[in-house]
Design a binder for these strands. Structure first.
Lengths: 216, 216, 216, 216
DNA sequence: CATTAAACGAGACGGTACGTCGTGTCTTGCG
DNA sequence: CGCAAGACACGACGTACCGTCTCGTTTAATG
């Protein structure tokens, strides 16, 4: 339960916002290593106590600052139109576009750095950042498996993780242009949906977009 | 060409090794943030000059230390037995086992942290660490596509990236037990090989291991 | 006017004192070259910032430390009993005794070293350390010249400087025992008071202490 | 005894000179604290070993460099014309002129700094630098006392020390213009020669230059 | 209202790490 | 063996950041 009725002067929302803004400014212009508590305090026109009153250290401060920005224009969560392949494609497209905006990429990267050298932070971050996507994917894929959209014996957890992992790796480590990213994402999804293995027998299956023919 | 005839006293290999060893010791026992130039110098019985003479800062020092350890017992590269699925499974298994050893995981994690906040470092690291795996995967998959082991229209680059991304995400962000990791890797590979999509028509295909039946 | 209402936490007098004490301790036990900012900070249980916040470098820090100790037990200033020769003798005696205490000599020597290689520091030091003595000597000698105690045509500035210079040279460069120093000081004063030149003519003057006869 | 026939390659005089010149250059342009062994070695185009082979540390190196320059144009030693007052005046004048040349003052000052924080160095320096002057003064004054030029009961050691101390103090600590220095030196010598004390009785003595009358 | 307790800005504080520089020693290969 | 070059261990330098701690001042909610 929150302590609703604390005595004394209440914390100022303006101070709070000024701090988060200052952090985002520094992150975007200079990256995580440029952020220091002193610098943030000065930039926000705030005492250091007002930082430490709210956040235990630099990592959670940056985390909240990024999540705050994130919350205002967060990347697409997995939609549910009934067509699971279309939904996944839409989702991947959304991620590619979101992280194609440099500001978004910079903030998220900073978040990754912030949590990089503490296992607990890393886990917490994964929960906050990837958690919703993971949940949505799991739910959607389970439903798809139950509804006959995808194979019933699909290892939904594994596929979910593969999608998130592949997406994040691309975003953080190999990002170049959005178009290239979209191309890779489409390639991944195609492979995943129809499989890469050739049919052992001659039984052919229907052709798949894009231009999917089954010849091996 | 190496400069063969450098003047003055040549750099000592013993000093070099002592430094790298000291870095690895600290990394394994305490993680990246415990590494400091002073600490390393003291632990290695070496002057700080001998560090800065060789490495510009902490990041490349840690990078070399880890790569050095890595070179001595590096994780399995993709084998080539003729059966691409078996090879991939073996490779994933090898990664799971390699990173299941805490020392290996700790060192690699440190490397990720070291390169986290500089784009150039990150790229260099990816090249050194993931590069050989990527190359091997690309070659193997292209050969498999050409040889009819996998579909000719497979987007090999995309699949390669998906595999590496999924693998690294699991290793760095969601590692728990080796067994769990192996299970997820197998699930990913199954999905990728045979596809997750149900045949739209009644044409069934051959059953796949493990227990793979195609019912949807 | 002092800035009365400085904002922020005021500087701690305890910190200030701890630092000065630590400096004096090191000076007395080891001399100027043993003083290092790190060492002082550690010995005083203080952060280096607290040193650099107050003093720009080692020299003014040592200067203040010594002047502080000096202020607590400073050497005798020139007294004024009406008998200028007795006063000067008393003053020289006081200096000899003061610097005969090893601690006082060590601290003052350190001060000389601290200011040795900067002209500004040297001047400032001379002002602070020798200034009061110079002022007192000038005043006293001028009064004595006006009152007929000493020759009216005495170059008071020159005599003052000779006394201070001779005294400091003995103290810093040729100090052995206090007794020897006192003997030299007396010899200097005798010579200065009555002159070393023989009367050209036979006119003799009254005998002077100690044992002063005018035979040449 | 010098080792005349050392085996192996003899030390190069050119190297020696290049080093001393480099030291003097740095001393004159930047002062003692600007001198570092590395800097000297580089400036002289010489290996550091060639420094340490010849001098144990910075202090004696600087000492020799300065003494070397000193030897080429050293300040006047006390002359002996038969008139002790004229000789002393000439000597003081010579010192004032010598140290009035900034280069000479700078080098000597450096020497003082070099020996400042070690008692042994200080003593050695005093011996080398002031020693010859002291000896000459002592000899001359003793002769003068014996010959009836000055009072037989003069404390020659004390007077010698007073002259050297007063001179050095002026030179090192209070140097402004040469003219001012000369004026002070003359004042000191006048006071010392004829004494500052008024004759208690009416017996007057002969007038002294400059303009010396005995009125009190 | 007046009280009061917390928030607030400023900035001092003890620590620790940084990257540079200086000292004096050691180790190459060349002359 | 002398010598130039330069690596080496050590340790001081002055700066920056961290997280804590006073200061004096402001600001609501409460009594």
């Amino acid at each position: 339960m929150e302590e609703v009725n604390r005595r004394g002067r209440p914390r100022s929302q303006a101070t709070h916002d000024a701090i988060l803004d200052a952090v985002c400014d520094i992150l975007v212009t200079g990256g995580y290593s440029e952020v220091s508590m002193d610098r943030v305090a000065t930039a926000a026109g705030v005492g250091k106590h007002s930082l430490y009153r709210r956040w235990a250290s630099k990592a959670p401060l940056v985390a909240e600052a990024v999540m705050n920005a994130y919350g205002q224009q967060s990347p697409l969560l997995l939609p549910d139109t009934g067509d699971v392949e279309a939904d996944l494609r839409e989702w991947l497209l959304g991620q590619a576009r979101y992280f194609g905006v440099e500001r978004n990429a910079a903030l998220s990267r900073a978040l990754a750095v912030a949590s990089a050298d503490d296992a607990g932070d890393r886990e917490a971050l994964d929960l906050q950042l990837a958690g919703p996507h993971r949940d949505a994917l799991l739910r959607r894929l389970h439903a798809a498996a139950a509804g006959g959209e995808i194979r019933a014996d699909t290892d939904v957890e594994a596929v979910t993780e593969a999608l998130i992992g592949a997406m994040l790796y691309r975003i953080f480590n190999r990002a170049k242009t959005v178009d290239e990213t979209i191309k890779v994402f489409n390639g991944i999804l195609d492979a995943l949906m129809r499989g890469v293995r050739c049919a052992e027998n001659v039984e052919s299956r229907g052709a798949h977009r894009p231009g999917g023919d089954d010849r091996c």
